[in-house]
Amino acid sequence: MEFRENQAIYLQIAELICERILLKQWASEDKVPSVRELAVQLEVNPNTVMRTYDFLEQKGIIFTKRGMGFFVSTDAHDKVTEFRREEFLQNELPQFFKAIHLLGIDFSELQNRFEAFKTENY
């Protein structure tokens, strides 16, 4: 996995997991790969993955079963959506606004493009 430079690795891994949950690759109650498995897959320090799991557990996206490892929460999908929405509105949207303001892009043009994008991709 290539990591971007502007965000801590453990958060980027969290994002990756969230994406898999949103894409329904991992359904609720599914077992999440063990810390070691994911660390090997991503070639990162297992402690970093552990931090990611702790973080996701705090957010209620995954939970532990004693002695069995981590599992995707029942309401993980909603939690992830909520978490991502918040993150997007807080971090990514301001960047986006800045860009369209600087480049003088009109909202109506965005609207058209967004509709086209939706029909093309989904």
């Binding site: 070691r36 660390a39 090997v40 897959q41 070639e43 990162v44 320090n45 297992p46």
Partner: peptide
């Protein structure tokens, strides 16, 4: 190098 990272991650 990639194999090395995987192996170290699995052996700690």
């Amino acid at each position: 190098k990639s194999q090395f990272r995987k192996i170290i991650a699995s052996s700690i």
